[in-house]
């Protein structure tokens, strides 16, 4: 029994890191410009396709696809901002929600039209497992977890120590003040979209060795990503990390101990409860 709990916990942590990586970009964009990107998981899906096709057609190993896929998706995020999001930054809430909602449809069914309803996965014969604290975990998942930690660390360092990062934070806190200080807020927003979508792509690249991709795979992750951001506390990058870990643990522990059928019932109930009781999340300050 204790062994089972231990296994569920360890794999829950790794799973949580994966969820956190998916949620990272969502959290960044949400925090910087208070726009919720409903299409976030669709970029994840597209990145998974990109990585798959590089592997299937060019025999490029997913890990080596990072230098190609991630910059391309940075550009895609930047472009999305310039073409669409820029126009709704200060629009009413409804317009913001619907703009990314429409984008979700376009991307998902675009993928459907391009790739069909088939399911694709990358198969690497040598794929093994790594013992993590005595529990075997797929090497690809451990890699994804480490990449997740690294991404959070790098982003936090970027925000704290670089001039651009500080400018980004200033733009996030108060648009008007940032403008008055001469910070190019518009470019900061574009940057946050570029970075946010790039991290989604990073998640896609490292998910494909374990997961399979189909046009609707975003559904598996979107709500969990929202839940991660809200549980951890939106408006802070580390919130997504804490939230993702909580969900991974909650899902695996309650799923294993109580009933897997209801594992997402627990997660979503926690999500709604957090919204109601502590909308600022676990880490959030009361002030914001």
């Amino acid at each position: 029994m204790t062994e089972l709990v231990w296994q569920a916990a360890v794999s829950g942590v790794v799973l949580g890191l994966v969820y956190a990586l998916v949620a990272l970009g969502l959290s960044l964009i949400w925090g910087v410009m208070d726009v919720v990107n409903l299409a976030h998981a669709e970029y994840l899906m597209l990145a998974m396709y990109a990585t798959y096709w590089l592997w299937a057609l060019g025999r490029v190993d997913p890990a080596l696809a990072v230098p190609v896929v991630v910059p391309v998706f940075f550009g895609l995020g930047w472009l999305t901002y310039q073409a669409l999001v820029r126009r709704i930054v200060r629009a009413p809430l409804a317009a913001q929600i619907f703009a990314t909602f429409g984008l979700l449809f376009v991307l998902r069914y675009g993928a459907f039209a391009a790739f069909g309803p088939n399911v694709y996965g990358v198969w690497r014969p040598g794929e093994g497992t790594v013992p993590v604290l005595g529990v075997p975990v797929a090497a690809s998942k451990v890699t994804a977890g480490l990449v997740s930690l690294a991404a959070f660390g790098l982003l936090a360092a970027f925000l704290r120590y670089t001039k651009t990062g500080k400018a980004l934070q200033a733009a996030a806190q108060n648009r008007e003040v940032a403008l008055a200080l001469g910070i190019p807020v518009d470019r900061m927003y574009a940057l946050s979209w570029g970075l946010g979508i790039a991290t989604a792509a990073l998640a896609g690249v490292f998910l494909i060795p374990f997961y399979q991709v189909s046009p609707t795979i975003g559904d598996a992750f979107l709500l969990l990503a929202f839940a991660s951001v809200v549980l951890g506390g939106f408006g802070r990058v580390d919130g997504a990390l804490v939230g993702g870990l909580c969900i991974g643990l909650l899902e695996n522990l309650l799923g294993t101990l109580v009933s897997p059928t209801f594992k997402f019932l627990f997660v979503f109930a926690a999500f709604v409860a957090m919204l109601l009781v502590r909308p600022q999340g676990l880490l959030g300050d009361v002030g914001r």
């Binding site: 089972l4 569920a8 799923g255 294993t256």
Partner: peptide, 20 residues
């Protein structure tokens, strides 16, 4: 006997329980 919703984001909990 474990039921899950497709597409799943993880089946670890289900399969751990089954294995146990």
């Amino acid at each position: 006997m474990e039921l899950y919703t497709s597409p799943p984001s993880s089946l670890t909990a289900e399969l751990l329980r089954i294995r146990a």
